[in-house]
Simulated scan of single mutants.
Amino acid sequence: MGAEVAEPGTVRPGGRTARVRTAVLQAAGDTLAERGFAHLDLADIARRAEVGKTTVYRRWGTVTGLVADLLTDMAEQSLPRTESGSLLGDLKANARLVRRTLADPRQGALFKAVIAAATCEAKTAEALHRFYEIRVKEWAPCVQQAIDRGEVPKETDTHEVIRAVSAPLYYRLLTSRDPLDEAAADRAAEAAATAARAGVYVRSEAGLG
């Protein structure tokens, strides 16, 4: 469920609208990372982005609307999956991508802020769920290819395998001061691959007659 991205908006074509969106999303992401969701203010974001306040209010309307657009932009610009030819290789690539994102001072702080906000803001929670849905769908074909190669059982839930890779890394980010190093990423991938091969992620209804 990798999420490493370019700076918001930089992949998009030119034009004033694109430049405004880039500047505003950059300012929103920086503020989230530095001060958290509670300190997001549209007027302050407009000043920071050097964009007219009216433009920001008209386009995004609310702080939650702005955060939702930021997450949409991040999901769209996240790096695509890599395919190594083996389940473990693919899951390690995914885990290392997630680790790089969460270990990055700006990105890690940004995700902490959004996750915290999602616990009490329904629209932010919806946007966060949409972000992860996009990223899981991007990487799920790696597991399907493993099914096709006969590496894992036929009825394996491809999405659950991908979620299992990143879950330990998010847990470490949110609950521990232990470093998010590459060894932790590789362990998460190895654990998910081993469990998948053992049939842990086979859909429960697959066994019903």
Rank of each mutant, 00 (worst) to 15 (best):
P105I: 09
R12S: 03
A103D: 15
A140E: 14
A38Q: 13
T54C: 03
E121I: 03
K154V: 13
T119S: 13
G85I: 09
T54H: 12
K53R: 15
H159W: 02
A118G: 15
R81D: 08
E138Y: 03
D90S: 04
A191G: 05
V63L: 08
I45G: 02
A46R: 01
R21S: 10
D90M: 09
T119P: 00
A46F: 04
A68N: 08
G14M: 13
A164W: 00
A185S: 06
S176H: 13
T124Y: 07
G65A: 04
A164S: 14
A140T: 12
G9D: 10
G207Y: 15
H159Y: 09
L42P: 06
L66E: 04
V202F: 01
Y57C: 03
E138K: 12
V98G: 00
K137I: 02
A49E: 03
A118P: 03
A18R: 14
A75C: 07
G9T: 01
I134S: 10
T194S: 11
G89Y: 04
S86Y: 05
Q145V: 04
K137D: 14
A185R: 00
Y132K: 05
D186T: 14
Y170N: 04
T156I: 06
L128C: 04
A193K: 10
A93Y: 00
E126I: 05
L102E: 04
V56H: 01
A196C: 07
W139S: 00
A93H: 01
R47V: 03
A140I: 13
I162F: 02
R106N: 03
L97C: 08
R47I: 03
L97R: 00
T55S: 14
V152T: 05
E34C: 02
A18M: 12
L169K: 00
A28R: 01
D104K: 11
G2D: 14
D30M: 08
D41I: 05
S176W: 12
G14S: 13
L25E: 06
E34V: 06
D44N: 08
Q26G: 13
R58L: 14
L42C: 09
G89P: 04
E121A: 07
L42E: 12
L128N: 06
D104G: 12
T17P: 06
D69T: 11
L110W: 11
R12L: 13
P168V: 08
D181I: 11
G150T: 08
T17G: 10
D148Q: 15
T55R: 09
G209Q: 08
K53N: 07
M74C: 05
A109P: 15
T62W: 11
R106A: 06
V136W: 10
L208G: 03
E138G: 02
G29Y: 02
K137V: 02
G207H: 15
V143T: 07
F111R: 00
H39K: 12
L32W: 14
L208M: 13
L174I: 09
D69G: 03
E133V: 10
R21H: 10
P8I: 02
A189P: 14
S166Y: 14
Q77C: 04
G199P: 13
L87A: 01
K112S: 07
G14F: 14
A93T: 02
I45K: 00
Q144N: 10
R130N: 06
